[in-house]
């Protein structure tokens, strides 16, 4: 569950204020808005990369407002993937597990599992610079999911891929979310993408976030927003 209560964030001259947002546990939420409307800033505030000026952010009932990004246990996939280019695909997937000092055998098992889920098994020994756009996004997704975070934040993950790849990745995102039962907040400006994936939809404009009528049963009107 992601809950933001009366959150204000400042980024230079830009300001988001009084944001209330609720994404129930295990739901796929999509946040839409124009370029420069503050979508990415909101995600950065949730994962702790951008400090909030006021308000409260809760993840699965825990107040994480004062916590650093490392302690929030949030999977984060930025727009361009931001893969670690000096590492192999396998090392990218294993990164969060090795940071947590997991035993080697457990790391290998989890990497194998996540690679299979995302269709990366044949790419494990590949270097990052040779990967296609779609492969990069799958690796970034796998890297974020490897440590089984309860919350996954996706910042326009499909904006830099072609139409076919986008279609495949949409299917993959939906099935991964259902398999892992992760709470997802996906930022996009693509309406078709939002309608395809979202159980809960939000719209951000002029520094405010509003809930949109949900296209499916999952997005009940409990998602109150200012």
């Amino acid at each position: 569950m992601i809950r933001m209560s009366d959150v204000s964030v400042r980024a230079g001259a830009f300001r988001l204020s009084g944001v209330d947002l609720l994404v129930p546990s295990g739901q796929y939420a999509v946040l839409m808005g124009k370029t420069g409307s503050g979508k990415s800033t909101l995600l950065e505030a949730i994962c702790g990369l951008k400090p909030i000026a006021q308000g409260r952010i809760e993840l699965n009932g825990v107040d994480v407002s004062g916590m650093g990004p490392a302690l929030r246990c949030v999977g984060y996939v930025p727009q361009d993937g931001a893969l670690f280019s000096t590492m192999s695909v396998r090392d990218n997937l294993a990164f969060a597990l090795e940071i947590r000092h997991m035993p080697n055998r457990a790391v290998e098992a989890r990497v194998g599992e996540i690679a299979e889920l995302l269709g990366l098994s044949d790419l494990l020994h590949r270097a990052i610079p040779g990967l296609s756009g779609g492969e990069r996004q799958r690796v970034a997704l796998g890297r974020a999911l490897a440590f089984q975070p309860p919350v996954l934040l996706l910042d326009e993950p499909l904006s830099a891929v072609d139409e076919d790849t986008r279609e495949n990745l949409c299917r993959l995102l939906k099935s991964v979310q259902q398999t892992t039962n992760t709470t997802v907040l996906h930022v996009t400006h693509n309406r078709a993408e939002a309608e395809r994936l979202a159980a809960v939809r939000f719209h951000i404009a002029d520094g405010r976030v509003d809930a949109l009528p949900s296209p499916t049963v999952c997005g009940s009107t409990t998602n109150t927003v200012r």
Binding site: C47, P69, A70, Y76, P78, A82, R143
Partner: peptide, 22 residues
């Protein structure tokens, strides 16, 4: 790209780990 360090932080790294490993 500073984003790589930021991702490393969300994956559980301290500032020093993000610096030394990424």
């Amino acid at each position: 790209d500073v984003r790589r360090e930021q991702v490393a932080l969300t994956l559980g790294c301290s500032r020093f780990q993000a610096f030394s490993r990424v």
